[in-house]
């Protein structure tokens, strides 16, 4: 059972993940306009692939959420699907981005298949954890860490794509949306993690190990830049 405040511990991991990402050579390259059009498009593809299936991931988290956290996760899920009052379906925003970047029908189909393949891989990978409780915590930590990052960097990424890839503002709504909404989500995400830990009575030592396992790589570099070639100074960016 967690007795000490775990928020600072988790925040330290999130801060470190975001810092390493923001300092990574590829992030700098993209933000400073040094990437080629193909490299911007590879980044856009990877970003869309990462987030297209967010509703499915949130649905999984909703299924394993403790009663105290379930309403918030359900709200996020409905928001992702555009079924809340704002009624903006987030995957549609990602397709708007892809369309503005000139992805034709074939490439958008490939994008959808690639996103689905990631879900398939999640299901077919041999499970290292002994229970769904541990897997759920690891997924929750990664999802809330993404929200944390987007609340701090989505606006910068959107501006870089407008300035250096020439994408119109209306195609960048996903970034505008996440930079505003995820400031709230990021805080609520930490609440959800605390509620999850309390509900499943997860020991502090186990949390530390699962944090270590979840964040042993930089999750943003891994998701967004995996297939981009190594560039100078990138040797340890994935730590």
């Amino acid at each position: 059972m967690i007795t000490l405040s775990i928020r600072p511990l988790i925040e330290t991991h999130y801060v470190n993940q975001v810092q390493v990402f923001a300092d990574s050579p590829w992030f700098q390259h993209l933000e400073q306009g040094q990437a080629s059009r193909q490299e911007y498009d590879a980044f856009i593809f990877n970003l869309c692939q990462t987030h297209l299936k967010s509703p499915q991931i949130l649905a999984f988290l909703y299924a394993v959420a403790p009663p105290t956290a379930a309403p918030q996760i359900k709200h996020n899920l409905l928001e992702e699907l555009g079924l809340d009052q704002v009624a903006i379906c987030h995957p549609d925003l990602l397709y708007q981005l892809a369309t503005a970047a000139g992805f034709d029908g074939d490439r958008q189909t490939h994008l959808a298949e690639a996103a689905q393949a990631q879900i398939r891989q999640l299901c077919t990978d041999p499970l290292l954890f002994g229970t769904i409780q541990e897997l759920g915590l690891s997924v929750l930590l990664e999802v809330t860490c993404f929200e944390w990052m987007l609340s701090r960097l989505a606006s910068r990424i959107g501006k870089a794509l407008a300035a250096h890839r020439g994408l119109p503002s209306e195609s960048l709504t996903w970034f505008h949306h996440h930079s505003e909404v995820d400031i709230r989500h990021a805080e609520e995400g930490l609440d959800s993690v605390e509620q999850y830990l309390a509900y499943y009575e997860i020991e502090a030592e186990d949390l530390e190990t699962i944090l270590d396992i979840t964040f042993r790589e930089n999750i943003f570099v891994k998701r967004y830049f995996a297939d981009l070639p190594a560039i100078a100074g990138a040797a340890d960016e994935n730590r």
Binding site: T124, D125, P126, L127, L128, G130
Partner: peptide
């Protein structure tokens, strides 16, 4: 992929819980 950033096989080779494969 527990050690390699990407492994070469389409399906993952690594063991699961308790080291079983």
């Amino acid at each position: 992929s527990l050690l390699l950033r990407e492994d070469l096989s389409r399906r993952p080779i690594h063991f699961g819980h308790r080291g079983l494969a």
